[in-house]
Design a protein around this nucleic acid. Structure first.
Lengths: 225, 225
DNA sequence: GTCTATACCGGGATAGAC
DNA sequence: GTCTATCCCGGTATAGAC
């Protein structure tokens, strides 16, 4: 459970070594190392944070030598991009297939479903989320933070624009409202999700958080009255 | 406009140098240097971010030598604490005097006033806010982020608790709702405030932001209907 | 492909002259 | 009190052996 599996998986391919199939045994081992590094990076990012994680932390956790890192990635930044790409690949189909017909964020069930989905995505990809969060927070005034906020809430914004087209009046521009909602969501996620429940003083279940956000965003503090 | 004023202000006191009054001329010069360093730090934190700012950036901006820094502060962290203390001192009376009688966040005017006040405080103390934000974001899972979120929204939480005592039903626990609101606010502030308007793609006036947040928090997406 | 060993550098922190 | 000069460490990145 500690390190990623280091056992060689190319047994089927390695019956005759040296000769090598078209794929290449070495290439497979290389891919394994790259994967091990990525997996170790995820663990480390979550535990120490992205900025605090040193290259040596990653290689050590992966059980590889320091120098090996640079055989696969140019640096920490590039590794993060790779993780991001993996995440997108994995998320692509999910999003597409379960994002069907109507969108009305005014409907309690739909709003809740959207919030829950977003929350789940963040939970499932915490290491990457944390890393992106930190790297975006790094340059105030550069617009990076705002950029992330708007791109991450693109889907949300579309729904809000649809609402507006349907003649509903929004609290503000779809962009700003979406950013506000997204900021709220990601800030809470960053504050609550990464903590091991024992140590963290806050003890809210996912359901409780999502229920609260749904109620707040749906009817505000006045509770619809 | 570049560096802080280096002209000596103790002219009234320095008529006879060497002898020295009870205050001490050197002590005054020292205080000036400390102030210059703090002021320079604020500028640098805002421009480069807290984590990116090197000691040498601060001393250079203050027009002092590197070594001088350590005659006044043990390190960057301690400097930040000093800035924080200054901010609290300055903010103390303002908060106390203009925070009178009734609190009903359900009242549009009062909610707006509270949001506007919070926004203004953040704007007025951007460098410190940015620094605290970054340093809190640094250790995921440590609870630091959650801690900041809850302490920063202590006042908000109290108001919410009062609401609840008055029999109003809230979207969730005061703590969680307050954290959500605070997260939304600080995230937006971090994303919007530090940008020089020209470069940043987002161009929202303070009023527009506050109006939007007021409407969103008051009645939610459904707009009270 | 992966290792060990090491060069290299940014930046924090200190010593001692002025 | 402040400066200059320097030490020193953590951490990145590379070279070359295996």
């Amino acid at each position: 459970m500690l390190g990623p599996d280091t056992d060689v998986k190319d047994g089927a391919n390695a019956g005759r070594s040296g000769q090598g199939g078209l794929v290449g045994v070495r290439a497979q081992k290389a891919a394994e190392t790259a994967d091990a590094l990525k997996q170790a990076a995820r663990e480390q990012f979550l535990q120490r944070g992205y900025l605090n994680t040193k290259i040596t932390d990653i290689t050590a956790a992966a059980g590889r030598a320091t120098g090996s890192f640079y055989d696969h990635f140019a640096g920490k930044e590039e590794l993060l991009q790779a993780l991001l790409a993996d995440m997108h690949d994995a998320a692509r189909q999910d999003v597409v297939e379960q994002h069907p017909a109507d969108h009305d964020l005014t409907d309690p069930e739909q709003l809740r479903a959207h919030l829950a989905a977003a929350w789940q995505v963040m939970r499932d990809n915490l290491p990457v989320m944390v890393a992106l969060f930190e790297s975006a927070m790094m340059r105030p005034g550069s617009g990076h933070a705002w950029e992330r906020l708007t791109t991450d809430t693109a889907m949300l914004r579309e729904h809000l624009e649809r609402l507006r087209l349907d003649g509903r009046s929004l609290p503000g521009t779809p962009e700003l409202v979406g950013a506000a909602m997204g900021g709220m969501l990601s800030m809470l996620a960053y504050a609550l999700l990464p903590g091991r429940s024992s140590e963290n003083s806050a003890n809210y279940s996912d359901d409780e958080v999502i229920d609260t956000l749904t109620a707040l965003l749906l009817n505000g503090l006045s509770g619809g009255r």
